[in-house]
Structures are given as structure tokens and as C-alpha cells.
Design a protein around this nucleic acid. Structure first.
Lengths: 253, 253
DNA sequence: ACAAAGCGTTGATTTATGTCAATGTCGGCC
DNA sequence: GGCCGACATTGACATAAATCAACGCTTTGT
């Protein structure tokens, strides 16, 4: 199990930190993909995996590359995006610890991925993974569930991009953050104020919501004016009334 | 195998047509999901399935419903959409023969689905399907591939909705149609003119592309003015130069 | 043959968001 | 501690697309 240290790609900037080169004490051990496995199974999985560290800002998956690997993020945060030749960009999502990378793929990578800070990854060869699937059907089942869940999120995001205005988009983002952080039981929003740390810049948020930086900023300003949110600094918002915010986000007026 | 005729939901408007109540001569037998199965396996699958006919215009999956079933479209065309309370709508996709419906689901349906014409469906109980998966792992593998493919398409559509202008969106749609119809080998576009039948109304196209009917119409007009397309009637376009159209669609100028 | 309805196109105007530009705020570093 | 650079906000203006409205083309039914 103490292995996966063969470094092949220029992207990798450091050899494995021994502490993170074993699956059983991985930061993502009990979240995401690997939680579907027993400890013994995990050992076998580990043999198919390599553990990498990526430097901040490095694009380690390039749209159009041959899709050789699956990845599991074990620490740090990743920006997943697609771009047009003239530079317009859309961020399809942000992946952090425990999240799985490389589903939307068939031969060629359909997206690029960039480390937002120092990122640690667990990398699986796609062909090797097929063997792993045969041995551990639970893993495949889990992956299907993850894919279905991602598809749900994608559809929700398409509705947002196609039909919501700027303020609704920003409000929706704030609520999704709240859900993710609180994993609100039964989909219920807190009746009382919640304070959130915004984990991304205005630029990333704009590229995620299909807006410009300025429009994101103005939308925050409007929510502020309407008494729905409050900033202590640019990256710390308080949702003063999450339920009212939800009315705005989903046009329940 | 001659079964699945128990009709339970108001949605169903006619009993099975005998010709379509058997999986082995289903219209979708050799496309989509069921192609992953041998003829014998198909018999077992059929036992878990019901065959339904849906009236044109009927919404047979309602967003938020408990997700009891998976569906496979065996004939006709289905509109998959999400809506906001005030009526704004986004069509996430159109499903026709052989296509699978019900992936983006976890407990609750994440979308609604509406028959665009008379639609025939093959319906599987989700719990029963888990048993089927256990018996036929090939099916689960296939479903994972389908999910990955749908995710790729969803990401592409998000880029379109977030960052492309009206003309680019319409051009992209025309090219996707061409790909689907021609299943262009190796992703190569024809160098010569192609004529397409547009299978959906301007209204549906607008809801799919995140535009209004008028903007769709004006975008067609502009592509016409630029000598890229030609109409014989509102539902028959000729792409005069597919490769130039691709330059427009993907901002390769 | 005609009226009526449904769908699509085109034109005039409004509006939300993008663009360009100036100013403000915060954190790191000499 | 103060300066610098990155990031964020705010303002003035431009513009793409939405909205509102009229008109045209097909199809359907009487």
C-alpha cells in the first residue's frame, strides 16, 4: 500500500508526502468516493492509485487531452472550467476535499481543471479502474450515484444560467453555499441569520454564474440594500434572512 | 416476458400495444441502454419493466415527485425541463427513441418531462432495478457511461448558456443537430452543405437555448444574411457551410 | 373560399447587463 | 508604518437581448 509514488507528468511538483500516500488515512477517506469501500478493499484500490501534489494556479487537466485518469481531491480546491478560444470562460464547478473529478469524460477530457491553492490528488488510471470496478462493484454503484447527483446540480445550474437574473443568481449561490456548509436537514433553511465565508473571488464567482465581476458586485450591493445580507468584509457575508433570500433566489415572490 | 401490462398511473392512456410490450422487438432494442444486454438478459429485464403510452402534451414526470421509476423512451419525443414558479422555463434536453430518462434523480425528481407527441416508454421501478443491476453488471456500467456522457453535454450547454451570444447559441444548436444526425466520424464536419429538419418549434428552441422566440428568429435571420444557412420552410434548414458555421458557433474567428 | 388559430418573422422601444474608467479597501512586504 | 499590488466597489455609458406590437404565412375547419 505504501506506493503510488511514480511521478510521470510535469504537473506534479513534489513527491508524495508519506502521510498522504496511503488511502487509509487520506483526508477524503470518509467522504466522497472511497467511503463506499471497506478498509480491506481500500488497500486494493490504493494499489491502483497515485498520490500527487499540484502547485497553485497549475492547470493539471486540459480540455481535449486524452482522458487517461480519474482523480479524487484529497485536499485543496480545484476550479473546473471550459473556455472559448477568445478567452470567454465558464467555471462549471469547484471541487474540494473528497470530491471526484473526471466523470464528464469520454476519451477526451471535456473540461480543464486548475488548482486554486496547493491541491493534493489521488489519481487512478482509467483502465486500471475498470479492473477495480470488477473487484468492487460498490465503487461503481457509488460512482453512478455521484454522477446522478452531479447531473442534478448541472440541470439546476442550467436553469440558473438560462433564466435567472443577476440578483437571483447571486442569491442562489449564497443559498447553495449555505446548504453545502450546513447540509441543512431535510432541505430546511435556517430561520435565523447565518454567516458564511465566501471561498472564491468575485472573478471566479462571475465565471461560475455567467456574469461579470461588476454585475456580481452590484448584485451583492442590491441584496445589501434590500436588507437580505450584510458584509463584514468582502469574503464574509451574513445572510440576515435565509428564507427571504430563498424567495428571491427562486422567484417565489 | 409478455407482461408489464399493469397500468397504475393516470398518465397512461392506453394499454400496451402487443407489438411493443416485449423488449426483444422494442424500437430501442439496439440503441441506448438495452444494447448492453444479451437477448437472454433482456428477458429478465423485461420482467422488471412496464410498457406505457403517453398522450401528446402530457407531463408524465413532475419536478419534485418521488422518484419511483427509470424510463427508457421507445418511441416519440420528450421534453425535459425545469421551471420557476413565475413560469420561466428551461428545457434541459429532448429525449427520443432509445434514450434514457431518470438519471438526474435522488429521491425526488429533479426535472419534469412532457410528451411532445405520442410517446412510448419502458418503465422500471427503481428498487427493482437495483436487483437487475446485481444480476447484470453490464447494465450498470452502461448507465455510468451514459451518465458521464450526459454530464459532458450538460457542461457544454452550461458554457453555451453562460458565455455564448444568441447567434453562437443557435449556430451551436444547428451543429449539434448535424452531429447527432450524421454521427460525423471522428468529429469531422461535412465540408459540403447539409439539409436538416428542425425537430422542434421556435418556442422550444428558445427555452432550450435560454433565449426568447424573437431572438431565435433574429439569429436565424442573421445567419441567413451572412450566407451560412438557408430555409426552404421554417423547419427545413440547409447549412451552406458547416465548417464556417462551426467557426461562428465556437468563436474560432 | 373564407375565417380563425397557431406559429414565425420583423420592427420599435425598453432594460438588464456588459464595458470602460475611476476610486476604494485590504493585506503583504520592504 | 507606509507603499504597492491585487481585489472589490461604484459610476457613466454602450449594447445585446427582452419586451411589446404588428404583420405574414400555413393549416384547419366550416
Amino acid at each position: 500500500m505504501l506506493e503510488g509514488s511514480t511521478i510521470r507528468r510535469p504537473v506534479v511538483i513534489s513527491a508524495n508526502n508519506p502521510a498522504s500516500s496511503r488511502c487509509d488515512d487520506c483526508g477524503a477517506r470518509h467522504i466522497g468516493m472511497c467511503d463506499a469501500l471497506s478498509d480491506e478493499d481500500l488497500g486494493a484500490l490504493s494499489r491502483a492509485a497515485q498520490h500527487l501534489t499540484i502547485a497553485p494556479g497549475k492547470v493539471f487537466i486540459e480540455e481535449g487531452d486524452p482522458a487517461t485518469y480519474f482523480y479524487n481531491v484529497t485536499s485543496g480546491m480545484v476550479r473546473v472550467f471550459k473556455a472559448l478560444p477568445d478567452g470567454r470562460r465558464h467555471i462549471t464547478g469547484f471541487m474540494s476535499t473528497g470530491q471526484f473529478l473526471g466523470l464528464a469524460v469520454s476519451g477526451q477530457c471535456a473540461f480543464s481543471a486548475e488548482a486554486m491553492d496547493e491541491v493534493k490528488l489521488c489519481r487512478f488510471n482509467r483502465t486500471a479502474l475498470n479492473q477495480v470496478f470488477a473487484d468492487f462493484p460498490a465503487l461503481e454503484r457509488r460512482l453512478l450515484n455521484i454522477a446522478a447527483h452531479e447531473l442534478t446540480i448541472a440541470h439546476e445550474q442550467m436553469l440558473l444560467l438560462a433564466r435567472k437574473n443577476a440578483v437571483e443568481r447571486v442569491a442562489s449561490y449564497l443559498l447553495n453555499l449555505t446548504f453545502k456548509l450546513e447540509s441543512c436537514p431535510g432541505g430546511k433553511l435556517p430561520a435565523t441569520a447565518v454567516t458564511l465565508k465566501l471561498p472564491i473571488s468575485r472573478a471566479d464567482l462571475a465565471d461560475y454564474l455567467g456574469l461579470t465581476i461588476e454585475t456580481v458586485s452590484r448584485s451583492f450591493a442590491q441584496l445589501k440594500r434590500n436588507g437580505l445580507i450584510e458584509f463584514s468584509n468582502a469574503h464574509a457575508v451574513t445572510l440576515l434572512n435565509p428564507q427571504k433570500l430563498e424567495v428571491v433566489a427562486n422567484a417565489k415572490g
